[in-house]
Structure formats: structure tokens, C-alpha cells
Amino acid sequence: MTTSTAAGLGIRIEGLRKRYGEGGAAVDALRDVNMVVAPGEVVGLVGPSGSGKSTLLKCLGAVIEPTAGRMSLGEQVIYDDGWKTKDLRALRRDRIGFIFQAPYLIPFLDVTDNVALLPMLAGRSNEDSRRRALELLAALDVRHRAKAQPSQLSGGEQQRVAIARALVTRPPVILADEPTAPLDSERALGVMRILNRMAEQTKTAIVVVTHDEKILPTFKRIYHIRDGKTYEEAGEGRAFS
């Protein structure tokens, strides 16, 4: 396994297992998953349907509990044959950013408040939260849509707002679940360009689960997952023109 991250930073997964059910009906969704993602790195996670991609993402996102293994986010060990933190919601809110296949923006909040909601939930002032949101919207070229409702945005704009939402609390880790699936090639590459830029600028470790072949060349490293096991492969890491 290639290790390109400083110890204790980014994402580190060792020997992760997840079993659904018990006895004869038990299914091992993850058997032996190992993964390391450095701060500022964007890695791909690919595999056929049912290979365990979503299960791995849910485990990493502290949504479901693994059966065994060890996971670290940044300097914090979050799982070591059991959760090491009691407040998983706070962990998700403060240390993990999520980007979904569909943007899933809150339809009754405008673009700024969609992004600012998380820091507000964390207890930061509305003013600070909105200022931070506007900075990110500017960085992602959607500042001009700050007051728009999500339904007024194009698919690409919505996904950029979703990226801003994932970045707003400055999490050390972002988990992206097929973020380019609903986009055409140009927009998909645009999203990947943004993710790479933001990862580099904010030193965020980003895992992108994807089926999308057109974005595979953008990864420097790709993890393949088959039958619940991960296999690392060097990617093309094609530079964005």
C-alpha cells in the first residue's frame, strides 16, 4: 500500500470490516479495506454496483458502524473496533463535508443560507456564517447567485453550492458520492477542477466515489473496491487545462 500522507492526517483506514446480518444470513460488505488519503489530495473510489462503495462511504461518514478495523480523520481516531467519539453528529458536522449525487440543497433556504446553515448549527453567528459562505461562493464562482433559491440554479451551479456547503466548516475530510453523475462532461470536469483546487487550497482530503469514466483521468490515485476489498492504483492525474 502506498502511503503518501503524513501520519495522523487526512484519512487513514486500516483493516476495516462491515458485516450485515448474523449467522447464515450474514453478508460481509467490507472485508479488508485499507485506504490513506493525504491532506489536499483527491482520490477516486470506484467499483461495480454492490462492491461496497456506499457502505465504505457510510462507515467513513460515521453514518453506520463498522464491524471491526480502525479509522482516523485528521489527527483523530474515530473508530478502533468501536466508535471513539460519542457525538457522531458533531463529528459529521465539524469534521466531515458531504457532497451527494444530487445537490440536495434545502429548497426553502437561499443559496447563502444553504451554505451558512452548518456553521450556524454549530453555534457560529449568522453574520460570520454568511460571510464565510459568501467567500466560498465567490471562490466557486456562484457569488452572483447568493440570494437565489436552489430551484433557480442550473445543475452545475447547484453542485458548486453543494461543494461550498461541504467546505464551509473547513472539515479535514470531504466525502463525495458520485458528485458528477448528473452533469455533462464539461460540467463534470469543472466540478473536479473545483474539488482539486479547493483540496489544494484548504488541505482537505477528498474521497470521490464515482462510476463516471470521464473524470477518472483526473485522479492521481484511485482505489478500486471489489468484493469488499480495496486495491490501490495510480491514476493519470491529468492536469486541468
Partner: peptide, 16 residues
Amino acid sequence: IREIAVLKLIGTRDRT
């Protein structure tokens, strides 16, 4: 449902 699931996933507390 989706919006609530997202809110919960990104860390919104039950009481909120």
C-alpha cells in the same frame, strides 16, 4: 424526507 436526511447527515441535531 431527503432534506431531513441531509440535515441529519450534515449534523443537524434531532431537537432542531
